[in-house]
Design a protein around this nucleic acid. Sequence first.
DNA 1: CCTTGACTTAGAGTTAACTCAAAAGTTTAT
DNA 2: ATAAACTTTTGAGTTAACTCTAAGTCAAGG
Lengths: 133, 133
Amino acid sequence: MKKLLTIRQVAEITKLSVHTLRYYEQIGLLSSIGRDKNGYRCYSSEDITWIEFLTRLKATGMSINKMIEIAELRRQGDSTLNARRVLMEEHYQEVQEQIADLQKNLDLLAHKIVIYKEMETIYELGQKKKCEE
Amino acid sequence: MKKLLTIRQVAEITKLSVHTLRYYEQIGLLSSIGRDKNGYRCYSSEDITWIEFLTRLKATGMSINKMIEIAELRRQGDSTLNARRVLMEEHYQEVQEQIADLQKNLDLLAHKIVIYKEMETIYELGQKKKCEE
DNA sequence: CCTTGACTTAGAGTTAACTCAAAAGTTTAT
DNA sequence: ATAAACTTTTGAGTTAACTCTAAGTCAAGG
């Protein structure tokens, strides 16, 4: 016995807007979302799981186009499991590199902050001198 | 004796396009770029240093608007050194948190990759069985 | 002298990823 | 039963950060 959810409930659970949920479906990120007798969307718990997976991909900077690619492979069934895993592993590597770059640039900025502090001290000394004059 | 550079040379050094250099100047990221007798831009080594600093801010995900804010403080001189340092420290903290989040999400994806591998094995066993039938 | 190519400007066009609006049908609360 | 709050669709609008185009000026090479 599956319990189905309305678009609003899914929006609350996933923290996406109802707009975005419809948009994701339209561009092919979500497929075969069920409908009730009036054509209202009914989301299953598998749909939620999939949306949460997408959210994680997004949180690691994957583009919508890349996600659509994976969604299309998924639609083709289990024979694409290997292809999907390869894409995921590539993405994993890319993000690891991104994190390393980010940390490197951040360390350089930390050094800049030190320089700011030095310059501040010099500036303050100059101001103090002015006061004394 | 300063040596001045053309926009094209600066584009090569900084890896920004000439378009982008003009755009950055237009929106207030770069100020007081010198001009020669024909109105051609002449960049100084301090300009290059500043552009490279901006590039580092960008590499750590700072928005153009935030960078403009810092550029405007810089234009106001040394009295804004403290304000600028505070902004930088805030940015530093934010990026550290971003990196932590990114790593957390990436670890969750790594787990998903393991699951893919398990599913692949099951699928392959299924296929093998079909062959044997 | 003429063409090639770097430079100038103002302003239009692009891309990603939403985000909203309008018009109409449906469900719920009173 | 009727108003408020949901849902639907199509298609237009938004934002950031570029990116390009057109129309023009200027200097150097053949």
